[in-house]
């Protein structure tokens, strides 16, 4: 039996329906909230939809990002150094929502900052701020009671990660409470390192489609507009994170200041990725 979305009427579901109607895949962009400072981060966030991001993953910085490679580790530390917190991340989402009512925002991070905030208060605050979904790396289905089920009850999607190690036997369990879309982590590894082959991605997406009616986004290791386009041919969305975060890091000078034009440069790169994704099935 294929899994379906328990939160069928959501900003995420509407966005994927619109993409389907357009006959194209979406671009999901990741930035870390507050990297390198709250103002620049907000400017990048606010500029993402106009440059072609269809969905936004906003990283909640954590001191110990166990599943992330050097680029996102460094971005988390920059954000924390600039004073970023869960509360300020939610404020960023509120700021974004003043100008954009349609682009889904998915918070991505690790469980402990949410645990420290308190699951129920966090979910209420996140929903109120305009958060649509959560991706929490260290919560596998075995720990669904911690956050996934309360999130679904609060009307916040819980986007599950599936990986090359998720086998057929495990798939129904992994799919059971997932909502919004399924995020296929295309390599066994950490963010921003190796890239999977197109054949491997094709096969994995086909396998996932046998188990779910939800959209499938593919991420980890997509660094260029061409790679994003390749993924966009077979998947419902391509996720780019480390490459964008690295562009942002390139705009930081030796003393930690942000060089002029950095926001434009990052958004320009997102525009190139979006062009790649949009041309993929042309």
């Amino acid at each position: 039996m294929k899994s379906v979305d328990v939160l069928a009427d959501s900003r995420i579901a509407r966005r994927f329906a619109a993409l389907k109607a357009e006959g194209r895949a979406g671009l999901v962009t990741f930035i870390t909230a507050g990297d390198p400072d709250p103002a620049v981060s907000q400017a990048v966030l606010n500029g993402l939809p106009a440059t072609g991001a269809d969905l936004i993953e906003l990283g909640m910085p954590f001191t110990d990002p166990m599943a992330d490679g050097p680029a996102i580790q460094a971005s988390s530390l920059r954000a924390l150094k600039a004073g970023m917190t869960v509360r300020k991340t939610l404020e960023m989402v509120r700021g974004f929502r003043k100008q954009d009512a349609d682009t889904p925002i998915i918070l991505m991070g690790y469980f402990n900052p949410i645990h420290a905030y308190g699951v129920e208060p966090f979910l209420a605050a996140a929903r109120e701020a305009g958060v649509d979904g959560l991706i929490v790396v260290d919560l596998p289905p075995e720990e669904d009671e911690e956050l996934c089920i309360p999130a679904l009850q609060a009307g916040v999607s819980f986007v599950r990660l599936t990986t090359p190690t998720t086998d057929e036997a495990r798939m129904p369990m992994v799919m059971r409470n997932t909502s919004g879309f399924v995020y296929y982590v295309s390599i066994a590894g950490i963010t921003g390192t190796a890239s999977a082959s197109n054949t491997a991605i094709d096969a994995a997406v086909a396998q996932l489609k046998r188990h779910t009616d939800l959209p499938v986004a593919v991420g980890f290791g997509i660094k260029t507009p061409d790679q994003a386009a390749e993924v966009a041919r077979v998947a419902d969305a391509a996720v780019v994170g480390s490459a964008i975060v690295t562009r942002l890091a390139d705009g930081i000078d030796a003393s930690g200041g942000v060089k002029p034009g950095t926001v434009e440069d990052v958004l320009g790169f997102v525009g190139e990725l979006a062009a790649g994704v949009r041309a993929a099935r042309g």
Partner: peptide, 19 residues
Amino acid sequence: RGHFGIFGGRFVAETLMPL
């Protein structure tokens, strides 16, 4: 499920879970 009262558990990435 690996719990000692409220403590313990298996808070790992999906990639590691089957292992």
